[in-house]
């Protein structure tokens, strides 16, 4: 059935759709929209709050929040406290990751130890991923560093912005993505 007819039918029946409001970015659906891009799997780093391994972004079972940063970027340092607070407040409800595309390794722009030191110095306490191929950056960077990106469980970006944000701004953006995710309570 076409979406318009479905919606008209639902509205006519007085049915509440997704908590009473249609999400700003589109009609919520329990199926993955055909234009949601494929998730990307990247390497994660052994650092405070982060385990070595892999992470797939965006998650399909919950909302995802990405902080795109670089150790070379002073505003990214400024952003860390608000990220920490946002992580405390909503980190359990989403996949919460910081990613960098800098060249990490021996003889590279920074070594892994240097990255971990930066993380520890700035009280990082959640998953860090290495976007070595800059594919996540290409897809999600919102104009500058740092970028904050909140994606719902269908892979749709619900909120993103660049520059230093407050914890309240970050949490509000993340909650938009949570609310737009199927199965979310209103």
């Amino acid at each position: 059935m076409r979406r318009r007819e479905l919606l008209a039918g639902l509205a006519g029946a007085g049915t509440v759709v997704a908590g009473g409001a249609i999400a700003v970015y589109g009609i919520p659906s329990t199926e993955e929209p055909e234009d949601a891009p494929d998730p990307i799997t990247i390497e994660t780093v052994d650092a405070p709050g982060s385990d070595a391994g892999e992470v797939t972004i965006p998650a399909s079972d919950r909302a995802t929040f990405i902080d795109i940063f670089g150790t070379w970027c002073p505003p990214c340092v400024e952003q860390m406290p608000a990220l920490g607070e946002a992580y405390e407040r909503v980190g359990d409800d989403v996949l919460f990751v910081s990613i960098t595309n800098e060249s990490v390794g021996d003889g590279r722009a920074i070594t892994e130890d240097e990255l971990v030191d930066w993380w520890a110095e700035n009280d990082g306490n959640w998953t860090i991923g290495l976007d070595r191929r800059a594919e996540l950056t290409e897809r999600y960077l919102a104009g500058g560093y740092p970028s904050a990106v909140a994606i719902d469980a269908t892979g749709t970006v619900q909120w993103s912005d660049s520059g230093v944000k407050t914890a309240d701004e970050l949490v509000a953006g993340i909650e938009q993505a949570i609310e737009a995710s199927p199965g979310a309570d209103s």
Binding site: E102, I110, R133, A134
Partner: peptide, 14 residues
């Protein structure tokens, strides 16, 4: 260059 600090070179290769 491989030691590119900020993702510009991966973005070019991409």
């Amino acid at each position: 260059f491989t030691a590119c600090p900020d993702g510009a070179c991966p973005a070019l290769l991409l």
